[in-house]
Design a protein around this nucleic acid. Structure first.
Length: 572
RNA sequence: GCGCCCUUAGCUCAGUUGGAUAGAGCAUCGGUUUUCUAAACCGAGGGUCGUAGGUUCGAAUCCUUCAGGGCGCGCCA
């Protein structure tokens, strides 16, 4: 039930059928025309810019065209009770009571589905993909929640979504990680001091892993090479498990974990390269020394390169290292070849701000691999800064030199973390303030929205019922006051919020919307303090218009918080 | 040097494929509770939308210039 889309379609049809009469030669496919809720100072339900847009290519005056369009619409769409021409040529539309009643009834029927635009595409969203060399830190957390909620959002909007985690369980970092575990084991078993050499992982969690492995293993750890296979398998298991636990505590479950090691073993890379050689995206050649980096022993050697400059990248990228082994990017190319072959409509990668430089090459890779049939879009989450008492806050560094997700979860509950991590656009840095998140006040948006729900439930308690059942309205009983009207208009906007946030991959619009509708509710509620007649419950009863208004709020609160996966307590 | 992101009220930020007098929260000042949760509400002040141009009926939004801040720039992963 998206009234904007529905009515626009009607309007377009009418205008097309009466094109000549209106003197319109050029319809421009109705591009740029929209229907929206006008600012609250205008006393109308809908507003469209159609006359302003169409007047230009047809060389008509917007206000004159508006007079004709107004007549056309009022005579043919009986849902439109009254239309006013306003400002530079807006049409402000009032809906008939009958139309309002029908719309509201439909929303009540749709309930949990209200807001879905039923787009029906298949998405693959890769997110987190933190290296399995240690626990998740605060930086991963934002991307993790962003990806999870974006998945929920796209699912809610009617799509199929695969939530994917790419496990980088291959390469030098893994060797360093395993070596660190090995040295910690030697430290415990043979009392050898752990020397913090370059490239090793000093974090104390490595010690925990070492202890666990020692408890269950029977091998002697006399040589790194001899124990490597066993050690790497065990250490990776532990650290991946650790990450999965953190994700679980945040309420995140991926559908699929793809192992880089497996991608390598399946030799997918060769197929990918073979294909890209044919399309001339991969060639043997030489690369220039990296810019902005000095003091390197640069050797110009011939190797396979991916021509990412064709896709706007700064430089072409090496697929092979000097010693002939494959680069990380090469394996990622193979991984994305695999993703492309799974035939999703859209691929999305969620990255941290420090991976911005990687975007063009990997998006280009997908375009090349899919022969422009699949588009990969990378969304970047900017940094998270921790604050406490208004000043930057550093947590215990037990886990290493970063703030871990489990540290965070010890202080703040999952609901607050999820909501707050999305209470900013992904494009801007996010200040995460511990005090604010723990506060029970308007300043804490999570609380504010939840409190709205709790207050609604207090009405149920006062009326001694569990919910409003079987609500239905007839137009003759329809008589909303100005506060209710405002709330209902806001509810009508919900499908639009879903549509835009789905289209632009911007889940942050949902918490903002929920906060706004909560404000309208709290405000209306408080009117009862000033004026008896606005009290929700009169002589133990509640009137029908109010019941409907509250039910509509409940529907969007529940649908919204479901997408965020944040709880709605009925009492606080 | 290059790429990406950001610059909107004192502070932190929203702002829909370009729309009407640019919106919230915090902070400041003032008010509201014998009655459904005051953990809330109402009101006031506060703006050259970083700068300079351009596009047009109309620009915070699109294009160009410059300035400031962040992130990144390996044949690491």
């Amino acid at each position: 039930m998206n009234i904007f889309d529905n009515y626009l379609e009607l309007i377009f049809k009418l205008i097309k059928n009466n094109q000549k009469k209106l003197g319109l030669k050029e319809l421009n496919e109705f591009k740029g025309i929209n229907l929206e809720i006008p600012p609250s100072k205008f006393d109308s339900d809908l507003s469209t810019n159609i006359c302003m847009i169409l007047s230009k290519p047809n060389k008509l005056e917007p206000n004159k065209l508006a007079v004709n369009v107004k007549d056309l619409l009022t005579n043919n769409i009986k849902d439109f009770k009254e239309i006013e021409i306003a400002g530079p040529g807006f049409l402000n539309i009032k809906l008939s009571n009958n139309a309002l009643a029908n719309i509201i009834n439909k929303i009540l029927q749709e309930g949990k589905l209200f807001g879905s635009n039923k787009t029906n595409l298949s998405y693959n969203i890769e997110f987190v993909s933190a290296n399995p060399t240690g626990p998740m830190h605060i930086g991963h957390c934002r991307g993790a929640i962003f990806g999870d909620v974006l998945s929920n959002l796209l699912k809610f909007n009617g799509n199929k979504v695969t939530k994917e985690y790419y496990v980088n369980d291959y390469g030098n970092q893994i060797k360093n990680f395993v070596k660190s575990v090995y040295l910690r084991i030697r430290e415990i078993k043979f009392n050898e001091k752990f020397k913090n050499e370059k490239d090793l992982y000093p974090g104390l969690y490595i010690k925990e892993i070492a202890k666990k492995i020692l408890l269950k293993s029977k091998i002697n750890f006399n040589s790194f090479n001899n124990s490597y296979d066993f050690l790497s398998k065990e250490s990776l298991n532990y650290s991946i498990e650790m990450i999965k636990q953190d994700l679980k505590k945040l309420g995140i479950n991926h559908d699929k974990f793809v192992s880089e090691k497996l991608i390598v073993e399946k030799k997918i890379l060769f197929k990918a390269i073979e294909q890209l050689k044919k399309t001339k995206h991969v060639e043997e050649g030489f690369l220039e020394p990296p810019k902005g980096v000095t003091d390197r022993n640069w050797k110009k050697t011939k190797k396979l390169i991916f021509k990412s400059t064709l896709f706007g990248d700064d430089a072409n990228r090496a697929l092979q290292k000097d010693d002939g082994t494959w680069t990380y990017f090469a394996n990622d190319l193979a991984y994305h070849y695999d993703k492309v072959s799974r035939k999703y409509d859209k691929l999305i990668n969620i990255l941290g701000a420090d991976h911005t430089g990687y975007i063009k090459r990997i998006e280009g890779a997908v375009t090349a691999l899919s022969k422009s049939k699949t588009i990969l879009e990378c969304k970047v989450c900017q940094l998270v800064k921790l604050f406490k008492n208004g000043s930057p806050f550093k947590m215990s560094k037990r886990a290493g030199d970063f703030v871990s997700v489990s540290d965070l979860l010890n202080e703040v509950n999952k609901d607050s973390i999820r909501f707050m991590m999305l209470n900013r656009s992904n494009d801007v840095e996010l200040d995460f303030d511990f005090d604010k998140v723990l506060e029970k006040s308007k300043e804490n948006p999570v609380f504010y929205v939840q409190y709205c729900h709790a207050r609604i439930n207090s009405i149920f308690r006062a009326l001694k019922i569990k919910n409003f059942n079987n609500l239905e309205i007839k137009d003759d009983t329809l008589n909303f006051n100005k506060y209710e009207k405002e709330i209902i208009k806001k509810v009508f906007e919900w499908p639009k919020v879903i549509k835009i946030s789905s289209k632009k991959y911007e889940p942050h619009r949902i918490p903002f919307y929920l906060y706004e509708i909560s404000t309208l509710f709290h405000s209306y509620w408080s009117k009862g303090n000033e004026d008896q007649k606005y009290r929700f419950i009169q002589k133990g009863k509640i009137n029908n218009n109010l019941m409907i208004t509250i039910q509509l709020i409940l529907i969007v609160l529940q649908n919204g918080m479901n997408i965020l996966d944040v709880s709605l307590p009925s009492e606080m």
